[in-house]
Design a protein around this nucleic acid. Structure first.
Lengths: 285, 285
DNA sequence: AGCTCTTATGAATCATTGA
DNA sequence: GTCAATGATTCATAAGAGC
């Protein structure tokens, strides 16, 4: 079966109209935070954030399947020495819209941004809010099991001293490329805290989250041939991960350059081997 | 100078009247969560939680010094498959009361309670909400610095095995015995995520937080001879830590047994050596 | 392959300066 | 006075080079 990956250029406030009701199994996205990156997205002010986002979440509620899940990655910024309250106000408003606020996962960032201020420490965590349409939803817990403490004990001997000291609890994070290779009897269920590093690669999108983040939620809330939606696609991390995991995906972004770039990278690489030079260059870019 | 540790038996809603204005440097407490421990505290329903807590926070706002800090350890429970919103509503209400919501620290629990549910993972984190009266408050950041990664990398190899083991797992959360002995250039400021284990001791109080938790905030927000208040004292962890760190402390609890127990344990142990048998027993209990 | 060393950089925050 | 732009500050991690 062919795995689809559709990229739509446009504003999620209008583009989501195109999607049919009850057609998406998982929405996972990281919208622009309030007052951030105003050069690209227009910069939503904290006090206007809920009003800006609610029409979008209303559409998401429509296109999501009854047993589907919506994961929202967000963090409030500091305004005048206080944490903004717009995320809390958004949660309260989305519940009135009909969403269930099922859970709040924490992304504990191993390598957060440096800095020093007189009355504040470095911010090392973000929210991963889970919303659902119904109390019953699909959750494939076995797909994200992590190696047990025993594994960590034996394996940790081979790690550097730094690793031992700074991070001696590998269980509970739930990440790793080779999770599927571990045997069931050696695995445990993870917690609602995700301990992983921010991406350090040279992504052109200024706020790309690490691949392991959508990967974990796609694994947890979908199966093969399900459909994943990211209404703020950005550099396309969610779509690439979904394709690799054999899930259909839909991405929406308002920036033409992102859409072009993602479309290009989504094309299969293999055919290039049999095509003339000039085409090969385009595929390789 | 004598370090005071006062224990008041009674309800914080009325007992706090006894304390003068602007007299406390730090409030750190873990109140009964909604609908928890109803056998002891009466069990506050989630929808009534803010109304129940607001008179107390109003008193705390009064007794706190202008440059003081209020740390509130709390986590919403799950009600009907959803996270309750009473913590968010409390934050919004306290801001209207005059509090500044300066920061939200995360307590990342290394060893959280085991268990398995069909649509939920283990809860491995709690909120540590920081409130202040003013934008300017006392914060002694140097007191909680942690060794740097590079330091661990290069220097630890030269330490003995004993030293390695003894210092294990203290890094990253700002805890440890000899932090003050390390040179300034080898230390880094911590983040707003506290990675520490839940206490495994056989405390009689059902919700005792680990000593390192109040210790960290006492170190960060007070100096010696300052005053720390815990309006929900419980087993008295905050008071014991404060006394050990040479801070005055005030504890309030509605349960007579807790008050008696804490008063007993706060008495110095040395005099028992010169007292008759029956008194010694009481001190030792 | 392993190990060490170097380097770039990531949804930051505050104080100050300028419009 | 309010708002916007700039500079100073800072550290864990991944990736890559070199041996």
């Amino acid at each position: 079966m062919e795995i689809r990956a559709d990229v739509h250029l446009g504003d999620s406030r209008t583009c989501l109209d195109l999607l049919p009701d009850d057609s998406v199994d998982l929405v996972v996205t990281s919208p622009p935070y309030a007052d951030q990156r105003k050069d690209i997205y227009g910069g939503i002010r904290p006090e206007e954030y809920a009003d800006w986002f609610l029409p979008i979440s209303e559409q998401l509620l429509r296109v999501l399947k009854p047993a589907g899940t919506f994961i929202l990655n967000i963090k409030e910024k500091v305004v005048a020495s206080e944490r903004s309250t717009y995320v809390m106000e958004l949660i309260l408003a989305m519940r009135k819209q009909g969403w269930l606020w099922t859970e709040e996962f924490i992304w504990h960032k191993k390598n957060c941004y440096p800095g020093k201020w007189p009355n504040r420490f470095r911010d090392a965590w973000e929210r991963l809010l889970q919303f659902n349409k119904n109390k019953k939803f699909h959750m494939y817990q076995d797909a994200v099991m992590v190696p047990m403490g025993d594994w960590a004990n034996t394996r940790l001997k081979n790690l550097s001293e730094t690793d031992k000291i700074r991070d001696n609890s590998k269980v509970g994070s739930g990440f790793g490329k080779n999770i599927s290779n571990w045997l069931t009897r050696d695995k445990a269920y993870p917690t609602n805290v995700l301990l992983l590093a921010t991406e350090c690669g040279n992504k052109q999108h200024s706020a790309a989250f690490p691949e392991s983040l959508p990967e974990w939620f796609i694994r947890l809330f979908t199966r093969e041939n399900d459909t994943v939606l990211d209404p703020f696609m950005g550099s396309g991390t969610t779509l690439f991960v979904a394709k690799r995991m054999h899930r259909h995906s839909i991405g929406i972004d308002i920036v033409p350059e992102y859409c072009e770039m993602v479309r290009r990278q989504l094309q299969p690489v293999e055919p290039c081997l049999f095509e003339p030079e000039e085409t090969r260059e385009e595929c390789a870019s």
